[in-house]
């Protein structure tokens, strides 16, 4: 394989409890991929193994052709932006960013640190102590700290989950920008499908330590292959088809007001562009969305609906 990062039959365990059994995947140079899955699916464990913070039971990890499976984290040329940012509380912003360069006895530390701080817009904060900064600023320091040493792979643990909506968008731009200007390969871990879709070129969806499906973001969004993947990407209506297979619809794919089925409106949630109704019917619970501009249904009201087969995604397995 010519993958820049390759994970081959990686088995990770805490004591006797296997968290990840024989996981394999590869990442191309300069790619930005998301390890996506619910908590406990092994995504963070996998990331820690790539960083060298966890020793695998078996399997190999290669970065740029080199086997790093049992290499100390300091020798792997990876960067890691922790969810908690993990800044050194006793050092200033400047010293935090300079830390890795000092360890490498790199030349021109001052210029490189200032350039790094510039790139995340924190030049004026160089002499501040890190606990005094806001969460967003701390994250940018952490990012700069990981990037100035020019790692081959940048790992990010839930990079957007602690940020509010506005900062989230800003950080998305920063990360995309970094990908473009530095060409660094990035792997980030998240439990939030919208984060993964917004940021990643490619998504690896995990469950119980195994890969459920992986592919381009758009492909994952429009064509989940399993019930789990469909559920994860918002196909909230999953019903057996006529041939015994499984069909999945997003709430927006359900047509309300007309159709062969009938149900009772049990509740409604307003989501801006759409109103989403929960409908009790003989098919079970159905969720259907209607554009907010259209007339609303009342609670308890009987409603007819249709599950258009053309809009459904056919799932492979249960």
């Amino acid at each position: 394989m010519s993958d820049f990062v390759s994970v081959d039959k990686l088995t990770l365990a805490y004591g006797d409890a296997v968290a990840v059994p024989e996981l394999s995947f590869g990442i191309g140079k300069g790619e930005l991929i998301a390890l996506l899955g619910p908590s406990g699916c092994g995504k963070t464990t996998t990331m820690r193994a790539i960083a060298g913070l966890m020793t695998p039971k078996s399997g190999t990890i290669r970065i740029d052709g080199r086997d790093v499976t049992r290499l100390a984290p300091s020798l792997r040329e990876v960067g890691l932006v922790f969810q908690s940012y993990a800044l050194f509380p006793h050092l200033t912003v400047f010293e935090n960013v300079a830390f890795g360069l000092k360890m490498r006895k790199a030349p021109n530390i001052r210029e490189r640190v200032m350039a790094g701080l510039d790139s995340v817009g924190l030049r004026d904060f160089a002499n501040r102590l890190t606990p005094d900064l806001s969460g967003g600023q701390q994250q940018r320091v952490s990012l700069a700290r990981s990037l100035v040493v020019e790692p081959k792979v940048l790992l990010l643990d839930e990079p957007l989950s602690n940020l509010d909506a506005r900062l989230r968008l800003e950080m998305q731009m920063v990360l995309k920008d970094i990908q473009k200007t530095t060409g660094v390969t990035m792997i980030f871990v998240t439990h939030d499908q919208s984060e993964a879709l917004a940021l990643a070129d490619r998504i690896v969806l995990m469950k119980d330590g195994r890969i459920v499906q992986s592919g381009l973001a758009e492909e994952m969004y429009s064509a989940p292959r399993s019930r789990f993947a469909a559920d994860f990407f918002g196909f909230e209506n999953i019903l057996p088809g006529r041939d015994g297979g499984l069909l999945a619809w997003r709430p927006t794919a359900i047509r309300l007001g007309d159709g062969p089925h009938e149900g009772t409106i049990r509740g409604m949630s307003f989501g801006g562009d759409y109103r989403t109704y929960v409908i009790d019917s003989t098919l079970g619970e159905i969720k259907g969305s209607v554009r907010a501009g259209l007339p609303a249904f009342g609670e308890g009201e009987k409603v007819r609906f249709d599950l258009p087969e053309g809009e459904a995604v056919r799932l492979e397995a249960a």
Binding site: A51, S74, L80, G100
Partner: peptide, 27 residues
């Protein structure tokens, strides 16, 4: 003191002993 602060030092190029003296001890 959070453990990940030490892990960050390891990833940035510290040895275990180095991270104790540079990161743990001062804190």
């Amino acid at each position: 003191l959070r453990v990940d602060v030490e892990e960050a030092a390891l990833i940035l190029g510290c040895s275990r002993l180095g991270s104790f003296f540079r990161v743990v001890f001062p804190n």
